[in-house]
């Protein structure tokens, strides 16, 4: 998938229009558009966010995301500073984009 094809799937703010289209390959393509490199640590967050959405029909804000990370991966990764290092723009927003989920509504 080239940059043009990837961009055509996104809304004005860069979030996937049709959530059903998401797969790992698309996430990689979206990251590539941003010249952003997804490591296994980023993927942990992306999958947590998708799990959260599955369960609550919401893209999580920072607080629940931190809580989810702590529950699943332990206190070291359940910290906002850890997430901010991985996703410097804004962990809930940036990770939701690559996870193919709607923009988190209640995230500043």
């Amino acid at each position: 998938m080239n940059k043009q094809q990837a961009l055509a799937l996104l809304d004005d703010e860069g979030y996937l229009l049709d959530l059903a289209l998401w797969d790992q390959e698309l996430a990689e393509a979206l990251a590539k558009v941003d010249q952003f490199n997804l490591t296994s640590k980023h993927w942990e967050v992306i999958y947590i966010i998708r799990e959260f959405y599955q369960e609550y029909q919401l893209s999580p804000a920072m607080r629940p995301l931190v809580k989810m990370m702590a529950n699943k991966y332990g206190a070291e990764k359940g910290r906002s500073i850890y997430l901010l290092k991985l996703f410097p723009q804004s962990p809930p927003k940036q990770a939701a984009r690559y996870a193919g989920l709607p923009k988190p509504l209640n995230c500043l």
Binding site: F52, E55, Y56, Q57, L58, P60, A61, R63, P64, K67, M68
Partner: peptide, 15 residues
């Protein structure tokens, strides 16, 4: 319509 129940269940995650 969308069921609010799943989203209500998220409240605890938001403290």
């Amino acid at each position: 319509q969308k069921d609010l129940r799943k989203r209500l269940n998220a409240l605890a995650m938001y403290d």
